[in-house]
């Protein structure tokens, strides 16, 4: 299944650096032609490929603490590419690309059954409940590298796959075999003013992302970095988005969700 020089694109998000400013969200919206509506306050109806969550430590004033957690698609690898969403799509509208590790979504193929949304525990899959409408003239800022999604289909973060395609084209044109690390970066990585997001090939030990994530491939990519965790790691989703935090409560909340269960038990 795995090709010889297969890539495994992934991300490391340093939650110590993330200020929750939302630049990643806006950069993503602008890059990926995400539509906007007058009322976007119901976040369960709002299309945002990247969403920044606010985590609280649950303590009383003045010991209260907050942490911000940007959540793109986690591009789960599961066991052998068996991500929660890919295998459930009845129309093969989403796929796990073994050569990049990216979970794709074909909008024109999707017929809107939303099974993948039910399958995804991270709520990264978003449905187009409305026709996307740009006020007169605003459609001018649409990016031709990304197709606009029609009403009634599911969309999600693609790790800006179109940027990889463009970088590959360029590399091929220049007869270079490989795309350099800085040639393919997602819009959120590029936009983040805190430099909290690092993106690259987790199979390439020279990439910063691998250095930070230190994935242990014999344990489904679990990080060897004691500061790192992955969201809901125990579900076996084997995600490619790693988070770094020096605060224990953040790591416990994001990874060891038994804490919450235990709280409920108590």
């Amino acid at each position: 299944m795995k090709k010889e020089n297969a890539k495994r694109f992934g991300m490391v998000i340093d939650l110590d650096k993330c200020t929750g400013c939302g630049s990643c969200m806006v950069a993503c919206m602008a890059e990926n032609n995400v539509p906007f509506r007058e009322d976007e306050t119901d976040k369960l109806l709002s299309v945002a490929w990247m969403r920044v969550y606010k985590l609280t430590n649950g303590k009383a004033f003045p010991d209260a603490d907050e942490c911000f957690l940007p959540r793109p698609c986690q591009h789960c690898e599961g066991h052998h590419g068996h991500s929660p969403c890919v295998s459930v799509c009845p129309a093969t509208a989403t796929d796990y690309d073994a050569s990049t590790g990216i979970v794709s979504q074909i909008y024109t193929r999707c017929f809107g059954c939303r099974y993948c949304m039910a399958a995804c525990p991270y709520h990264v899959r978003l449905f187009n409940w409305w026709d996307p409408v740009w006020p007169d003239g605003m459609e001018k800022m649409l990016n031709p590298d990304v197709s606009v999604r029609m009403r009634g289909v599911v969309e999600k973060c693609s790790f800006c796959f179109h940027r990889y395609q463009l970088a590959r084209q360029q590399a091929d044109y220049e007869e270079r075999g490989e795309v350099a690390e800085n040639e393919y970066q997602t819009a959120c990585t590029q936009g983040c003013p805190a430099g909290a997001i690092v993106f690259g090939d987790l199979n390439n030990p020279d990439h910063e992302v691998t250095r930070l994530a230190q994935p242990d491939l014999s344990h489904e990519g679990k990080s060897r970095n004691p500061k790192a965790f992955r969201l809901l790691e125990r579900l076996g989703t084997n995600t490619k988005v790693y988070y770094l935090s020096s605060r224990e409560w953040v790591r416990r909340l994001g990874d060891n969700y038994q804490v919450k269960a235990a709280q409920h038990q108590a």
Partner: peptide
Amino acid sequence: SLCTLGLAGAQLLYG
């Protein structure tokens, strides 16, 4: 890199 407002600037041109 850029902040939220700067990244959304094109919307002020076409909005």
